[in-house]
Amino acid sequence: MIGTAITVLLVLVCAIYWATRLSPAFGRVFWSGTDRLLTACHAPEGVQFWARRRAQGKKAGGCAGCSGCGSKGGGCH
């Protein structure tokens, strides 16, 4: 029983890892939800910060190597 529970948990963790990698939008929703849950549960501040940082995600954009690529969605031209 415990073995099955750990197996399901591991598979879920891996599935979430790939879902957040493949869809950053899902990742932001997921980590925002996790952040709210952790806050409601009065989890340690460090854990909340960890989830919050992931919820914010990385800013989209290009290499920032030159000006004027905003209209290109961050791509070089």
Binding site: L22, G62, C63, C69, K72, G73, G74, G75, C76
Partner: peptide, 14 residues
């Protein structure tokens, strides 16, 4: 792989 396609998108902006 997805990473290559993603970097092509980023570098070309399309």
């Amino acid at each position: 792989c997805f990473s290559t396609l993603a970097v092509i998108r980023r570098e070309t902006g399309s």
